[in-house]
Computed example of a mutant assay.
Amino acid sequence: NVIAAAANGGFLSLILFALIFAFALTRIDATGRTALLTFFSAIRDAMLVMIGWIIWIAPIGVFALALTVAAKTGTAAVGALFHYIVTVSSVGIVVSLFAVPVAIWGGRMALGRFIRASLPVLAVALSTQSSLASLPAMLRSSEEMDVPVATSGVVLPLAVAMMRATGPAMNLAVAIY
Protein backbone atom coordinates (compact mmCIF):
# COMPACT_ATOMS: atom_id res chain seq x y z
CA ASN A 1 0.00 0.00 0.00
CA VAL A 2 1.80 3.10 -1.27
CA ILE A 3 -0.30 5.53 0.78
CA ALA A 4 0.42 3.63 4.01
CA ALA A 5 4.13 3.44 3.15
CA ALA A 6 4.22 7.21 2.56
CA ALA A 7 2.35 7.88 5.81
CA ASN A 8 4.63 5.60 7.83
CA GLY A 9 7.92 6.65 6.22
CA GLY A 10 8.49 3.36 4.40
CA PHE A 11 11.10 4.67 1.97
CA LEU A 12 12.07 1.27 0.60
CA SER A 13 8.45 0.52 -0.34
CA LEU A 14 8.07 3.97 -1.92
CA ILE A 15 11.26 3.61 -3.92
CA LEU A 16 10.28 0.15 -5.12
CA PHE A 17 6.84 1.45 -6.14
CA ALA A 18 8.40 4.42 -7.96
CA LEU A 19 10.76 2.14 -9.90
CA ILE A 20 7.97 -0.23 -10.92
CA PHE A 21 5.74 2.72 -11.82
CA ALA A 22 8.54 4.25 -13.93
CA PHE A 23 9.06 0.97 -15.77
CA ALA A 24 5.30 0.73 -16.35
CA LEU A 25 5.36 4.22 -17.87
CA THR A 26 7.67 2.94 -20.58
CA ARG A 27 4.94 0.49 -21.63
CA ILE A 28 2.09 2.97 -22.15
CA ASP A 29 1.42 5.21 -25.16
CA ALA A 30 3.44 8.42 -25.56
CA THR A 31 0.43 10.69 -24.93
CA GLY A 32 -0.33 9.19 -21.53
CA ARG A 33 3.35 9.04 -20.61
CA THR A 34 3.83 12.72 -21.52
CA ALA A 35 0.76 13.73 -19.51
CA LEU A 36 2.01 11.89 -16.41
CA LEU A 37 5.54 13.20 -16.78
CA THR A 38 4.20 16.76 -17.12
CA PHE A 39 2.01 16.26 -14.04
CA PHE A 40 4.85 14.90 -11.90
CA SER A 41 7.26 17.55 -13.17
CA ALA A 42 4.81 20.23 -12.06
CA ILE A 43 4.53 18.59 -8.63
CA ARG A 44 8.32 18.44 -8.37
CA ASP A 45 8.66 22.11 -9.30
CA ALA A 46 5.96 23.15 -6.82
CA MET A 47 7.63 21.13 -4.06
CA LEU A 48 10.99 22.78 -4.78
CA VAL A 49 9.32 26.21 -4.50
CA MET A 50 7.80 25.17 -1.16
CA ILE A 51 11.20 23.94 0.07
CA GLY A 52 12.68 27.29 -0.94
CA TRP A 53 10.04 29.09 1.14
CA ILE A 54 10.68 26.85 4.13
CA ILE A 55 14.43 27.36 3.87
CA TRP A 56 13.87 31.12 3.63
CA ILE A 57 11.64 31.32 6.72
CA ALA A 58 13.37 28.67 8.89
CA PRO A 59 15.99 31.06 10.36
CA ILE A 60 13.18 33.18 11.82
CA GLY A 61 11.77 30.13 13.65
CA VAL A 62 15.20 29.08 14.86
CA PHE A 63 15.87 32.61 16.12
CA ALA A 64 12.55 32.62 17.99
CA LEU A 65 13.38 29.28 19.63
CA ALA A 66 16.88 30.46 20.55
CA LEU A 67 15.50 33.68 22.00
CA THR A 68 13.08 31.70 24.18
CA VAL A 69 15.84 29.42 25.47
CA ALA A 70 18.16 32.36 26.12
CA ALA A 71 15.43 34.20 28.02
CA LYS A 72 14.82 31.19 30.28
CA THR A 73 18.39 30.01 30.88
CA GLY A 74 20.57 33.03 30.28
CA THR A 75 24.06 32.73 28.83
CA ALA A 76 24.72 29.26 30.30
CA ALA A 77 22.79 27.67 27.45
CA VAL A 78 24.96 29.42 24.86
CA GLY A 79 28.15 27.67 26.04
CA ALA A 80 26.47 24.26 26.21
CA LEU A 81 24.89 24.75 22.77
CA PHE A 82 28.22 25.83 21.28
CA HIS A 83 29.97 22.75 22.73
CA TYR A 84 27.20 20.49 21.39
CA ILE A 85 27.40 22.02 17.89
CA VAL A 86 31.19 21.69 17.78
CA THR A 87 31.08 18.07 18.97
CA VAL A 88 28.40 16.85 16.55
CA SER A 89 29.72 18.89 13.61
CA SER A 90 33.25 17.58 14.15
CA VAL A 91 32.03 14.00 13.87
CA GLY A 92 30.15 14.83 10.65
CA ILE A 93 33.20 16.58 9.19
CA VAL A 94 35.50 13.65 9.99
CA VAL A 95 33.14 11.14 8.33
CA SER A 96 32.77 13.44 5.32
CA LEU A 97 36.54 13.80 4.99
CA PHE A 98 36.83 10.02 4.79
CA ALA A 99 34.30 10.06 1.93
CA VAL A 100 36.24 12.54 -0.24
CA PRO A 101 39.11 10.17 -1.14
CA VAL A 102 36.59 7.43 -1.90
CA ALA A 103 34.64 9.77 -4.21
CA ILE A 104 37.79 10.95 -5.99
CA TRP A 105 39.14 7.44 -6.40
CA GLY A 106 35.79 5.97 -7.43
CA GLY A 107 34.99 8.82 -9.81
CA ARG A 108 38.55 8.99 -11.17
CA MET A 109 38.52 12.76 -10.85
CA ALA A 110 41.05 15.40 -9.87
CA LEU A 111 40.70 16.75 -6.34
CA GLY A 112 40.38 20.38 -7.48
CA ARG A 113 37.65 19.62 -10.00
CA PHE A 114 35.72 17.58 -7.45
CA ILE A 115 35.92 20.30 -4.81
CA ARG A 116 34.90 23.06 -7.28
CA ALA A 117 31.86 21.04 -8.36
CA SER A 118 31.00 20.15 -4.75
CA LEU A 119 31.14 23.66 -3.28
CA PRO A 120 27.54 24.64 -4.19
CA VAL A 121 26.28 21.37 -2.73
CA LEU A 122 28.27 21.88 0.46
CA ALA A 123 26.97 25.45 0.78
CA VAL A 124 23.36 24.26 0.59
CA ALA A 125 24.03 21.30 2.87
CA LEU A 126 25.72 23.39 5.54
CA SER A 127 23.10 26.12 5.44
CA THR A 128 20.03 23.88 5.50
CA GLN A 129 21.05 20.59 7.13
CA SER A 130 18.68 19.01 4.60
CA SER A 131 19.66 16.28 2.17
CA LEU A 132 16.50 16.88 0.17
CA ALA A 133 17.21 20.59 -0.18
CA SER A 134 20.71 19.70 -1.40
CA LEU A 135 19.41 17.38 -4.13
CA PRO A 136 18.94 20.02 -6.89
CA ALA A 137 22.47 21.32 -6.26
CA MET A 138 23.77 17.73 -6.34
CA LEU A 139 22.10 17.10 -9.69
CA ARG A 140 23.59 20.30 -11.18
CA SER A 141 27.05 19.48 -9.82
CA SER A 142 26.88 15.94 -11.16
CA GLU A 143 26.29 17.41 -14.63
CA GLU A 144 29.43 19.54 -14.19
CA MET A 145 31.33 16.37 -13.29
CA ASP A 146 30.06 14.69 -16.48
CA VAL A 147 28.02 12.08 -14.63
CA PRO A 148 25.33 10.73 -16.98
CA VAL A 149 21.84 12.01 -16.10
CA ALA A 150 20.53 8.44 -16.19
CA THR A 151 22.96 7.57 -13.40
CA SER A 152 22.69 10.67 -11.24
CA GLY A 153 18.90 10.78 -11.57
CA VAL A 154 18.62 7.37 -9.90
CA VAL A 155 21.61 7.24 -7.56
CA LEU A 156 21.39 10.69 -5.98
CA PRO A 157 17.72 10.50 -4.89
CA LEU A 158 18.43 7.05 -3.41
CA ALA A 159 21.48 8.42 -1.62
CA VAL A 160 19.48 11.35 -0.24
CA ALA A 161 16.76 9.04 1.04
CA MET A 162 18.74 6.10 2.35
CA MET A 163 22.53 6.35 2.26
CA ARG A 164 23.53 9.19 4.57
CA ALA A 165 26.90 8.15 5.96
CA THR A 166 27.13 10.97 8.47
CA GLY A 167 23.71 10.23 9.98
CA PRO A 168 24.63 7.22 12.13
CA ALA A 169 27.94 8.75 13.24
CA MET A 170 26.36 12.08 14.18
CA ASN A 171 23.44 10.35 15.91
CA LEU A 172 25.98 8.38 17.95
CA ALA A 173 27.71 11.64 18.85
CA VAL A 174 24.36 13.09 19.95
CA ALA A 175 23.68 10.00 22.09
CA ILE A 176 27.14 10.14 23.66
CA TYR A 177 26.85 13.88 24.25
Rank of each mutant, 00 (worst) to 15 (best):
G61A: 01
M47S: 08
R33T: 06
M109A: 08
L14W: 06
A175N: 08
W53T: 12
A125Y: 10
S89I: 04
A125R: 09
A18P: 01
L67C: 10
I60P: 02
T34P: 00
M47F: 01
A30I: 02
W56F: 13
A7T: 03
L19M: 12
A22P: 01
I115G: 06
A58C: 04
L132P: 04
I85N: 11
G74K: 12
R116G: 05
L81D: 13
V155D: 07
V121I: 15
A66F: 15
R33L: 11
V121S: 09
I93W: 03
F21W: 15
D45A: 00
G106I: 07
I93V: 14
L158K: 03
F11A: 08
A5Y: 00
A35S: 11
A5R: 06
V147F: 09
N171K: 06
I43P: 01
A7E: 11
F11Q: 11
A46T: 13
V95W: 05
P101F: 13
P168V: 11
V2C: 10
I93Q: 12
L156H: 00
A22F: 07
L172D: 00
A18Y: 07
L172Y: 02
V124H: 01
T87A: 15
T31M: 08
S141Y: 14
G61V: 02
V147R: 04
A99M: 15
S89W: 15
N171I: 07
A70L: 12
P157W: 03
G79C: 11
S141M: 09
V95D: 03
A46I: 02
M162N: 08
A4I: 00
I176S: 14
A42R: 04
R116D: 07
I54R: 12
A110W: 07
V100E: 09
G9W: 07
S130H: 06
I43Q: 13
A169M: 03
R33Q: 13
G167P: 04
N171V: 09
Y84I: 08
E143A: 15
F114M: 03
T87E: 15
S130E: 06
I43D: 11
I54V: 05
L25T: 11
I51E: 04
A70M: 00
S127Y: 07
D29P: 03
L111A: 14
V62G: 02
L65K: 04
I20C: 13
G153P: 08
A71C: 01
L97M: 14
D29F: 10
A150V: 10
I85T: 14
I54A: 07
Y177G: 11
I43F: 05
V155F: 15
T75L: 15
A133L: 02
A5P: 02
G92H: 07
A125N: 06
E144Q: 11
A7V: 07
L16I: 15
G167M: 13
R116N: 14
R108Y: 09
A30P: 04
S127P: 03
A70E: 02
G106E: 14
T166V: 12
V174E: 02
F21Q: 06
L65C: 02
M170E: 07
M170A: 00
F23Q: 12
L172F: 02
L48R: 01
L111M: 14
A173L: 01
D146F: 11
G32D: 11
N171H: 09
D146N: 05
S131N: 00
I28R: 02
A125P: 01
A5T: 04
G61D: 01
L67Y: 08
G10C: 01
I104L: 10
L65Y: 06
V94L: 15
L132E: 14
F40H: 01
I104W: 10
N171Y: 03
